[in-house]
Design a protein around this nucleic acid. Structure first.
Lengths: 349, 349
DNA sequence: GTGAAAGCGCTAACAC
DNA sequence: GTGTTAGCGCTTTCAC
């Protein structure tokens, strides 16, 4: 049997084997293992000794089948390779493990169908709770869904109010960043990764809205030539964006890059163009990643509060998993927006 | 029941429900779902229609309990946040999903006990196959282990010959990098993250050996003052290392940083010291990460062949999982060393 | 080509 | 404080 654990004699140690060896019933062994009350100290010790002597380990599949608990929390993300998701996964894994559970990471590749599939009935059943950061799924698709597994949504995609939702303050962070550039003398600020049409609720649109808001508030105009749409938000895109801007002869004295990764490419391109940062061009990124303070020049960035987001997600899961376990009333769904702040370094004045 | 899937009337759709609705037995439904032969085309269609009408999904826990297959491959790594592991996870996830399985990522935090625990009998049973990248576990501890789940080890830790093992060419890559610096005129090459005592088989020691080998081959001496041990291999460590070197007044005209992340900090520190790269100091990293070609200056690096490693891991799993499934003979364990090559850019001459 | 019986290893409910 | 009974939903075996 694939995956089965066998001892030297080829047999598998089951709970009943432990029970027989210890001279008790399987139920008592189960009670000991799960720390349930009603077992005498003496019996408990004998059972524990037998367990370690036989090297017994619970069969999680059987427990899952019987008890409905899986011991796993699912994290469903577009991609586990990108720093934002990798860090989210790392933080959640830590928290989930402290609660005696495992984190299972599933990647969708940013595919709408696979996102929906991942939160389908059957797949959710594999988890005690699920955290999903959708990229494409529509609120309308989610509206139909009804399930008992606690689900927390994370990110900027709109989500029906019937779900817990944790989001970063994309608009506010972008607004602060842009305001800083404007108030320190930049007049023509390029937004790398921005959207001309910012009416969809995704990351680039929300950050573009903050950029526009700041302009309106400070009485500045947005030149649509400075709104540079890009495919992906990596260094290569940032690099290309600045190169294109320069080749088009469009003047600019500030850059708001929608991610630190893109900003890395922006800095590289400006160095190639012999433009000095921040004297000729100010640059600010978004994410406040670990690398920012070691770039040349050190990159100013928006700190989105990812730790706080992860903590909040864990809190929400706690509430809901506890309620589901007790059969208690499910708490009202909540939307949390974590505030962003600026981390200013050498790339801005 | 937590995690249970319920329909509007609160009931759960089981295989037997599908069977009743389609007027067949559960066994026939099972045969249809698993694509087993011996079901007439007509019956098959009727069953499939009923399945989609009732929205039935197999209960994976029950299947797992009965069949012993889990549909999951485990990846056990010290940390999922670090780019090397994140990329490994991403690549493996893709490959595993192509095979109709899931990748479950577990992090150990680099703790020896937790690494051992993760490959214990009970935990392995959760997976059809396991990939583990240990950081601390000793070969002696592994020697005792005997299990039927296919396990592939990855990384530089020594592993008993009874296991499949995929490693990158740490020594060879470091040797090439150092040779390049030496043959292009550097005489005093600092190794950031190196080890004075390189007799343990871990990443820093192996790369240090390559560094020493290159020196021996080219008749150069290693000054132990240039071997800088660091705590972690992040930008901050690289930055500190160069600062300390400079403050001690130790001359150097080349830096081999054991990771690109450390090299990022090295470049930053050299910029602070107004040392020009590569004129005054040549710098080379290791990993050939995506960011390297956008740093200022563009970083030369050792390309370790991570894609090839991931492909090889998948290949090995394929063989072993297939053998375990068929009850066929297990293939002989193999050790694969993936060759490294240099990716030269602006930071070297 | 299809179905009935048995049981995977565990735990909830209840009896003693 | 401990044991007995039953059954979670599926698949293996074997009979028809």
């Amino acid at each position: 049997m694939l995956g089965a654990v066998s001892r030297d004699d080829g047999s598998v140690v089951r709970m009943i084997d432990v029970a027989n060896a210890a001279g008790v019933s399987a139920m008592t062994v189960s009670n000991v293992i799960n720390g349930r009350p009603g077992v005498s100290a003496q019996t408990r010790l004998r059972v524990l000794a037998t367990i370690s002597k036989l090297g017994y380990q619970v069969n999680l599949a059987a427990r899952h089948l019987r008890a409905g608990r899986t011991g796993a929390v699912g994290l469903i993300v577009p991609d586990i390779d990108r720093p934002y998701y990798a860090q989210l996964a790392s933080r959640l894994a830590k928290g989930v493990e402290e609660r005696g559970l495992h984190l299972v990471v599933e990647r969708t590749g940013g595919d709408a169908e696979r996102e929906l599939e991942a939160i389908s009935f059957g797949r959710l059943r594999m988890y005690d709770g699920v955290v999903i950061s959708p990229l494409r799924v529509e609120a309308a698709d989610l509206d139909q869904l009804r399930f008992e597994t606690p689900v927390v949504f994370i990110g900027e995609r709109p989500v029906p109010e019937t779900f817990d939702h944790v989001m970063m303050d994309n608009v506010g962070g972008a607004r602060q960043a842009t305001r800083h550039l404007l108030t320190t003398g930049s007049r023509r600020i390029a937004i790398v990764g921005g959207r001309h049409d910012d009416h969809v609720d995704d990351m680039p649109s929300l950050r573009t809205r903050g950029y526009r808001q700041a302009h309106v508030e400070l009485g500045a105009d947005v030149d649509e030539d400075l709104v540079i749409e890009v495919e992906s938000f990596d260094p290569a895109s940032g690099f290309q964006a600045v190169k294109r801007l320069h080749e088009s002869g469009i003047a600019f004295d500030g850059v708001f890059a929608l991610t630190d990764a893109a900003a890395t490419g922006v800095l590289r391109a400006l160095a190639d163009l012999r433009l000095e940062v921040p004297r000729d061009v100010q640059v600010i990124g978004f994410d406040n990643g670990k690398e920012t303070e070691f770039l040349v020049p050190r990159l100013s960035s928006v700190e989105p509060g990812n730790d706080a987001m992860a903590d909040r997600v864990l809190e929400l899961l706690d509430h809901r998993v506890a309620a589901a376990g007790d059969g208690g009333d499910a708490p009202d769904p909540m939307t949390t927006i974590v505030t962003a702040r600026l981390a200013l370094r050498e790339s801005t004045r």
